[in-house]
Nucleic acid binder design. Sequence first.
DNA 1: GTCTATAAGATGATAGAC
DNA 2: GTCTATCATCTTATAGAC
Lengths: 214, 214
Amino acid sequence: MTDTKSRLIQATLSTLREEGLAAASARTIAARAGTNQALVFYHFGTVNELLEASSNHAVDESVGRYREAFAGAESLAELLDIGRELHDSERRNGNVALMAQLMSGAHQDPVLARASQYAMSAWTREITLVLDRVLTASPIADLIDTEGLAHIISAAFIGLELYDGVDPTGAARALDTLEGLTQLLDVVNRLGPVARRALRSELGTTTQRGPRHH
Amino acid sequence: MTDTKSRLIQATLSTLREEGLAAASARTIAARAGTNQALVFYHFGTVNELLEASSNHAVDESVGRYREAFAGAESLAELLDIGRELHDSERRNGNVALMAQLMSGAHQDPVLARASQYAMSAWTREITLVLDRVLTASPIADLIDTEGLAHIISAAFIGLELYDGVDPTGAARALDTLEGLTQLLDVVNRLGPVARRALRSELGTTTQRGPRHH
DNA sequence: GTCTATAAGATGATAGAC
DNA sequence: GTCTATCATCTTATAGAC
């Protein structure tokens, strides 16, 4: 990748992270990259295709950086520790805010939609893999769809990040409470076989509703 | 409220819901309202103040419409049913997408930030009230901060709505899984006093980490 | 209150010199 | 590959006629 292309990508990432989607024009990005506005179109075709290339680059880098840590997790408690660290670092570097900005623009633009989908699939794929491994032979694995849970986790992080931009105190409180909830899940996860059977039969009585259709 | 003002507000809401924040300019909104672009500034000062007034209006209407239903909930199971109905109807009328759009723009604009904060507070206030009532004398009330839980619920709905715009299948799967999780919570909520004590002491051993600082 | 006209500026994208 | 110059179009916002 040429120097100019990668400078444009880095400039795009910092623009999205610091100023948001609305400020990410060819001119503002080129200024940050110390280059000319016309090069955005020469190298990437359109502005949104530059945003897509930048997002894909950032996602690949982030997912790769955490794949190793995920692979080392052997229990739900360990995974929670890694998840907390991951969330903290991704928020600090602005990647969660970046995804939230992209997703909000995806509603009307197919290129941004494709970029958002790439990012969400990359994360949920990794999260599903580690959840499947960690929750093997756990009562939770019987009761809950791990891929569905991975989707919930990704979506909740996006929502909390947006919320944090609006009410940091409330968002921090939500994160603390979320930690309590995952500990509750961890307790269920470590139940003995007797309690496990009781829980399953108890859930059976509350799961008499049919599947939902959206 | 004059006819023109309310027509502008309605036009703003449908624009935000159908075309997103990026398309919500004074001209597109005025065209939808069948009036002149200059009236946006005459009646509301700036475009973003029109967005704020419109959002506040929609939030007041929605929260009022559900206050009565919330007040009737006497158990967590009942509340879950109302919550499911609320979420379905709010998604159909586009109010969740509207809030997501506003929050994504709030990052750089103080007026949109104020509007987002108003919306989130209005919803979390109602949700906290009903959670406090429904979870009274439940083991969950001892273990979990209801206001924090209300924040999580609101933020997760926003995140899932954004996710739905990108991957409807994945979002639907997440919602089904979420239902399973709340049923798990309901089972814990209905535990007898013995299991309750066991759970509390079990959680005590996993809560040895200090409070988090953000 | 509502309109037209207009100012002053930003935007995506292209043509063409070098 | 990189630049300048430019087009056509959009934007917020205001002044002033009616």
